[in-house]
């Protein structure tokens, strides 16, 4: 980010380089990153896992024979893996493989929705605070500080307990409310760094309005770090949502989620470890994949960190 570039129009190739012919053509920032990403096996691994998890969330019937909470038989409760039931049965006597597959949807949905919303909030607020400075910055930064001071588990528990009977969107809202602050701070500091650079000053001197300067000249150059944090954040949000489920304040029956399965397992795992192992495995592999993907994207976007 030392040399500010713009996404559009692409920087014109330098005349010497073109004349030389041996140097690869100058790519746009996005193309550059993609070229970097493509070469990383870690990227392909995590992308494959996430694709699989995504398909599982979108079309669970491809994997699971039964619907959520369907054909549960209490007499088979807590039994271990057996023929036709690779993961055994849960406390309620439901086929555990089907239940674990159905658990993918809420996790991925909450993870991505929260991150998208929080990203949107932080890009808007961070840009405003960083670009205008002064009173706007003071107010927005103090509000950010207030929310930053709220402890995640405690804050979410208090809010969600106060509104029993909440659904997946209430959980999403609470996670957004408690999760936008870090990205906003990063966005703000990036905007401040870019604000005084030559090409921004030049655009302003040419008479460009605030909106145009922000969207065309500042945002493209300030977005990369916050995007990387957002990628890493998906995994954290999924883990956070599972934490709330585990504590019994997150999602509720009849929703099926990995966090709820872990919650159910906590009383019984000593004698029936399979109840704990399967959802924990799915949860950690998914979270890990998001973190690795975020890492790979960061390396690709910011070569200095390599």
């Amino acid at each position: 980010m030392t040399e500010p570039t713009t996404l559009d129009p692409p920087a014109a190739p330098l005349p010497e380089a073109a004349a030389d012919g041996g140097v690869p053509p100058v790519r746009r920032r996005g193309g550059d990153a993609w070229y970097e990403l493509r070469r990383r096996p870690l990227f392909w691994c995590s992308a494959a896992v996430l694709l699989l998890a995504g398909v599982m969330a979108a079309v669970p019937s491809l994997f699971a024979r039964l619907g959520p909470n369907e054909q549960c038989d209490l007499l088979r409760a807590k039994q271990g893996p057996a023929g036709g039931h690779p993961f055994g049965w849960d406390v309620q006597g439901c086929d555990y493989w089907s239940q674990v597959v159905h658990g993918a949807r809420p996790s991925l949905l909450v993870g991505t929705a929260v991150t998208l919303f929080a990203l949107a909030v932080s890009v808007v607020l961070g840009s405003l605070a960083g670009y205008f400075g002064g009173a706007v910055d003071a107010v927005l930064s103090r509000v950010t500080d207030v929310f930053f001071g709220l402890p995640f588990v405690l804050g979410a528990t208090v809010v969600l307990t106060a509104f029993p009977g909440h659904g997946i969107w209430a959980v999403t809202l609470v996670l957004v409310a408690l999760g936008w602050t870090t990205m906003t701070r990063i966005m703000r500091s990036q905007v401040i760094a870019v604000r005084e650079s030559d090409h921004v000053l030049a655009a302003r001197a040419l008479g460009a309005g605030h909106l145009r300067v922000m969207t065309r000249h500042i945002l493209p150059n300030a977005f990369a770090p916050v995007f990387v944090v957002a990628m890493l954040n998906v995994g954290n949000v999924i883990a956070g949502e599972a934490t709330l489920d585990y504590l019994g304040v997150g999602l509720q029956y009849p929703t099926v989620s990995w966090g709820l399965q872990l919650n159910m397992a906590q009383d019984f795992y000593a004698d029936h470890p399979h109840l704990l192992v399967f959802p924990a495995l799915f949860l950690s592999v998914t979270v890990l994949s998001f973190l690795l993907l975020g890492d790979a994207v960061r390396d690709a976007l910011d070569p200095r960190l390599r």
Partner: peptide, 20 residues
């Protein structure tokens, strides 16, 4: 949860929710 599953399966009541 066990009661809810049984009411769904045995009585065909589809929409069951918890008020915790």
């Amino acid at each position: 949860t066990a009661v809810a599953n049984q009411l769904r399966q045995n009585l065909g009541i589809d929409r069951v929710a918890f008020r915790k």
